[in-house]
Amino acid sequence: MNIFRLAGDMTHLASVLVLLLKIHTIKSCAGVSLKTQELYALVFATRYLDIVTDFISVYNTVMKLIFLGSSFSIVWYIRHHRVVRRSYDKDQDTFRHYLLMIPCMLLALFVHEKFTFKEVMWTFSLYLEAVAILPQLVLLQRTRNIDNLTGQYVFLLGAYRGLYIFNWIYRYFTEPHFVHWITWIAGVVQTLLYADFFYYYFESWKNNVRLQLPA
């Protein structure tokens, strides 16, 4: 474990807590894409298949349980909570996210490190996570007003994988044979997808104005 990865995990945890805070306290999911939340639940479900077979550390297991539990409970809140679901804008959250799942699964079947069920599912989760934010970014561009918590959620979610890139650079130079092109490329693509959001997020922070994405 290095400082970049710990910072990345804490940033990821913070993004999940910000979203749970928003949904649980103000009982609203306005501006939040259910599609992205469903994709993330699938990402964690396919990435953490080894949670029962490979024990790595208490930290690793606890964090996996937190990410699994939070992503599925957020999906439940938006779909079934009698108050929260009323604030879900299903007419705006129209990204066809199965069009993201299918190419990711096909790519995972062809491009992976080992052709085993767990490895292909794990690789699928990497590809899917890289594009999982798209429905959320599309929704943000449609709903003009982005509330602070949603903006902070997206920022933290994008920043965590960016920190992981520093972690991979660090591990490359400190661990022999630490080469994982699939993970690296998926992580860089994922972070680049946030590039324009980061730009407008910093602009709004610098000029102390409300975050607005161009139409």
Binding site: R5, D9, H12, D50, D54, I56, S57, N60, M63, K64, F67, W122, Y164, N167, R171, E175, P176, H177, F178, H180, T183
Partner: peptide, 10 residues
Amino acid sequence: ADENDVKDEL
């Protein structure tokens, strides 16, 4: 997960 595996990450 062996030493330099990336599976020890989240």
